[in-house]
């Protein structure tokens, strides 16, 4: 544990008593022997509920790995990951899958939508998988906020990149996950479309009360967040509210 991070963590814990997700001693190692790579080393991290957290750092620093571990897509080599008060490190694949569909939403950089489904089918997919029926008012609100009402019957290849990302965002929000993860959600978009998507992400936090974790390279994108985590060489360099 880097000594500089301890007071910040402590401070954050006092400021915001409940965290949506946290890690303790999280370590993830790839490969063995000569080719061994320490993607994450002893990471202690708290993601406060109801915040828009940006994760930044140089390429190869372990941002994606951190997010995979937080989202239950990857199993840590050691350490614990707790989401919504439940320890998910050590869960079996089936448990994890069910946990994911109940608590976690995703927006990826690209290839977010299934090509053979319409926008609406894509949006409702997580609920369908969980066997839950959508809350019609909530769905209408999300669709309205994102401005994709007239695109619901279209397939992904009939939509622009920005529209596709907004559909992906709607999918992430509609199930009201405890945590919404976004890995470089604006990587493929121009500045206008980026601003649109980031604006919606921030609105979802402020107006809809969502917790969002976003991985990004882009300082402009990070500026939309209210919480910032810096990763360097697989370690947390700093974490705390944006000044």
């Amino acid at each position: 544990m880097a000594p500089t991070t301890t007071p910040l963590t402590f401070e954050a814990a006092i400021d915001r008593p409940q965290s949506a997700a946290s890690t303790r001693g999280l370590t993830r190692t790839y490969g063995t022997g000569e080719t061994r790579v320490h993607a994450l080393v002893d990471v202690d991290l708290d993601v406060p509920a109801g915040t828009f957290t940006a994760v930044m750092g140089p390429s190869g620093s372990g941002k994606s790995t951190l997010m995979h571990c937080l989202a239950g897509l990857d199993t840590p080599t050691s350490g614990t990951v707790t989401v919504a008060g439940v320890e998910i490190s050590g869960m079996k694949d089936n448990q994890l899958t069910v946990f994911r569909r109940d608590h976690i939403g995703f927006v990826f950089q690209a290839f977010n939508l299934l090509p053979m489904l319409t926008a609406k089918q894509n949006i409702l997919l997580p609920l369908e998988l969980a066997g839950r029926s959508p809350d019609a008012d909530w769905l209408a609100l999300v669709v309205d906020v994102l401005g994709i009402g007239d695109r619901l019957r279209h397939r992904p290849d009939e939509m622009s990149g920005g529209q596709q990302q907004r559909v992906a965002l709607a999918r992430g929000l509609v199930a009201r996950p405890t945590l919404l993860f976004a890995d470089e959600p604006t990587g493929n978009l121009d500045s206008h479309a980026s601003a649109e998507v980031l604006g919606f992400l921030r609105r979802s936090v402020r107006e809809l009360g969502q917790t969002v974790v976003m991985v990004t390279h882009d300082p402009d994108a990070a500026a939309y967040a209210d919480h910032l985590v810096r990763i360097e060489d697989g370690r947390v360099a700093s974490q705390g509210p944006v000044a």
């Binding site: 989202a71 089936n94 899958t97 569909r101 995703f106 997919l125 998988l129």
Partner: peptide, 9 residues
């Protein structure tokens, strides 16, 4: 993607 969204193996 489907697995990430909660489709079991």
């Amino acid at each position: 993607l489907l697995r990430a969204l909660g489709l079991t193996r």
